[in-house]
Design a protein around this nucleic acid. Structure first.
Length: 292
DNA sequence: CGTTCAACCTGGGCGC
DNA sequence: TGCGCCCAGGTTGAAC
């Protein structure tokens, strides 16, 4: 569920906890539910977090990164640069400072020393999300440039061309590759292609400079607008901001989840196809097929 | 190199 | 009401 705008919104929502010191960390479990993936083991992470101060909240692609102080030095952490809690929400994960949708799917609970600070929760219904506690080197191997491409919010035509221009893959599939560009998911990929007027099946290597320029501009504009509107909360989906507000960008969607509805620009019925086992939505009138 | 498929999970919606 | 099936905003790794 959460793509770059949703993760960015959740990160912004929890930055109010900067400066707070962790009183306790717990990984609640329920018999019916499989524990969430955590590296190292949950008990170790919980002990490691206690007493640390939240220094900063970062985002890289679709991952939230909580930077914590090294006030509790350990041999494994000689750098003094602190530790990083990397949270990947995947399909249904939420970072919350408000009441969770359900109590049984709370996966991590951080309490802070100040009584005034709200609890920080990681909630995840499907449980596909992951949590990792790493040092600076671990952070680089998880979120560094070898693992994740340039952040989509600041991508330009040259960057797109450099990372995707020689690929023979369909552009829709390539936009989802986090190693090429980080932060775009299935929903925004369709919206970006629509705004740029590029057919999702076009092969990257067949795209020209003007198309890459339109794609880069569409990427920046759509993601920035979506951040400004706090992400997209679709129908039955669970995405909420950290303060439990629904996003508002879904009202701006032109093609995603709109199969059969008229294109807002040309009124052609929106089409749905499947690429790499995932739905793609596009307008056959505005996104010319041309030569793939 | 690229693509395809299954797997990881829960739960909502739909047809019967 | 219930059951079975399909679907979902993501990622990974194996197989071809």
């Amino acid at each position: 569920m959460p793509e770059l705008p949703e993760v960015e919104t959740m990160c912004r929502g929890i930055t109010r906890l900067r400066g707070e010191t962790v009183l306790s960390a717990s990984f609640p479990t329920r018999r019916r539910l499989r524990p969430i993936a955590c590296r190292p083991a949950a008990g170790f992470v919980a002990r490691s977090l206690r007493g640390r101060r939240l220094v900063a909240v970062h985002r890289r692609g679709k991952r939230a990164i909580l930077q914590l102080s090294s006030e509790q030095p350990s041999p494994a952490e000689a750098t003094g640069r602190g530790v990083f809690l990397v949270i990947e929400p995947r399909m249904t994960g939420l970072l919350l400072v408000a009441e969770p949708p359900t109590t049984e799917h709370v996966r991590l609970r951080l309490r802070f020393e100040s009584g005034a600070a709200p609890e920080l929760l990681f909630w995840d219904r499907r449980g596909l999300g992951t949590i990792a506690l790493v040092d600076a080197d671990g952070l680089d191997s998880m979120c560094g440039p070898r693992r994740l491409g340039p952040d989509a919010l600041g991508v330009d035509a040259d960057t797109y061309r450099a990372s995707l221009g020689r690929s023979s893959r369909p552009v829709k599939v390539a936009l989802l590759d986090q190693k090429s560009v980080a932060g775009i998911g299935n929903m925004y990929a369709s919206e970006i292609l629509f705004r740029a007027g590029v057919h999702p099946k076009r092969r990257c290597r067949r795209l020209g400079g003007a198309e890459w320029a339109r794609l880069a501009a569409a990427t920046r504009e759509i993601l920035a607008d979506a951040v400004a509107l706090e992400g997209s909360t679709l129908g039955d989906a669970t995405y909420r901001t950290a303060e439990n507000r629904a996003g508002r960008y879904q009202e701006r969607h032109c093609v995603y989840a709109r199969e059969g509805l008229p294109c807002p620009r040309c009124a052609s019925p929106i089409r749905r196809i499947v690429q790499a086992q995932r739905s793609t939505f596009y307008c056959p009138g505005c996104q010319a097929a041309g030569r793939w």
